[in-house]
């Protein structure tokens, strides 16, 4: 159980009102894509939903408990958060990097226990990283690093997963893999929220779409109900959405 709900969330940064009253709820087993133009407040909303930014007004609750009242450790066990374009600061091995996702579960000192090593192994395998596990994280390509970071986020099997731009920099196969992996987590009963720019991927995999524009929720609909009218209102472009057996594709003109 991991129901996340935001109500009336407002946040001002400098003189700019980044979030102007955002309300949305995210049920267990749902995969929500947060879409919107650049500067709409997607990343800020993700950080607020993750409990890393404190909203100026409104609140975010996880299973009825206000996020900011949870201890950092309890929150870390309940949710994983992956920011946009994360970076490795030291040349630690990929295996080590993925194991860092288990930090909230680890004892203060001491090494990774055998069952935790198994979790790391499973995450490496799931993200197609077995060949790279000994490599220094700073020498990975952008796409490889994104996969390693995603493995880091899911290694602890968090009930709530928030990912900011999980497919940025990934080639088509790995982008599809990443989205399929997020969807599989939702199908297994976890709550998954991802800010996604690629609308084809978002509409093809997510169950719900929250469209954000200028810090407000423009639409909160099932992914199947997103139409050209919404995209026009959201991005100011004419678009055609084609849904067929191969998935969803979006063309702009």
């Amino acid at each position: 159980m991991s129901a996340l709900a935001a109500s009336g969330v407002e946040l001002t940064r400098g003189a700019r009102r980044v979030l102007a009253g955002v309300s949305a709820s995210f049920a267990p087993g749902s995969f929500t894509a947060v879409i919107g133009p650049n500067g709409a407040g997607k990343s800020t909303l993700m950080a607020v939903l993750a409990g890393l930014l404190k909203p100026d007004a409104g609140r975010v609750t996880l299973d009825g408990e206000t996020l900011t009242r949870l201890t950092p450790k309890a929150l870390a066990r309940a949710r994983a958060y992956l920011p946009q374009s994360p970076r490795a600061e030291w040349p630690i091995s990929v295996e080590r990097l993925v194991a860092l996702g288990l930090t909230p579960q680890l004892p203060f000192f001491g090494d990774v226990a055998p069952d935790e090593a198994a979790k790391v192994h499973a995450a490496l395998e799931a993200c197609d990283l077995m060949a790279l596990k000994g490599q220094a994280a700073t020498t990975l390509s952008g796409g490889e690093l994104a996969r390693a970071m995603l493995a880091r986020a899911i290694v602890g099997d968090p009930p709530l997963l928030l990912v900011d731009e999980p497919t940025a920099g990934l080639d088509p196969r790995h982008a599809l893999d990443a989205m399929a992996r997020l969807k599989a987590r939702a199908d297994a009963g976890r709550t998954v929220i991802a800010a996604v720019h690629d609308l084809g991927l978002a509409l093809g995999h997510a169950s719900r779409v929250v469209a954000l524009r200028a810090g407000r929720v423009l639409a909160d609909v099932a992914a199947g109900d997103v139409d050209a009218g919404l995209l026009k209102a959201l991005y100011d472009v004419d678009a055609r959405i084609v849904r067929d057996d191969a998935g969803v594709s979006v063309r702009y003109f």
Binding site: P72, A76, P86, A88, E89, I92, L97, T103, L106, M149
Partner: peptide
């Protein structure tokens, strides 16, 4: 020590892992 380990993937992720 444990917080420094978590910081090797940046402040945002370290914070999300429970590092104060």
């Amino acid at each position: 020590a444990p917080s420094l380990d978590a910081l090797s993937i940046g402040e945002a992720q370290a914070e999300s892992l429970g590092v104060n």
